[in-house]
Amino acid sequence: MGGKTDVWQGTLALMVLRTLESMGPLHGYGLARRIEQTSGEQLQLNYGTLYPALLKLEQEGFIRSAWGVSENNRRAKFYELTKAGARQVKKAAAEWEQTTAILARFLAPAQKEA
């Protein structure tokens, strides 16, 4: 494995939703950069993989998109959270926290022994 971590399936959707929740409407490029920054440059995000994930979320009704103008006066497509999306962030975040908490219990004794 390299120095940076690959984004694994399913987590990207939650990162996108959470980023949109905290930042408001963003275009695809801005979203990609923001996710990289938030991860502390730990994540190796292939920007191309972001778009099918965005499309999926839009089809599921969690985000919506509209053309707008970027900070550099460039035409760009902006994504923003819908109401269903806001509910989904809470739900998915709670589920994810539970999962990591469970996993942490399994890992804790091993760390003590080490």
């Binding site: 275009h27 695809g28 490029y29 801005g30 920007y47 778009y51 970027s70 550099n72 460039r74 035409r75 760009a76 497509k77």
Partner: peptide, 15 residues
């Protein structure tokens, strides 16, 4: 629509 979106993405990144 998606071609235009990608093009704007590439332009922003290029800049």
């Amino acid at each position: 629509d998606f071609a235009a979106e990608l093009e704007s993405h590439i332009e922003m990144h290029t800049e």
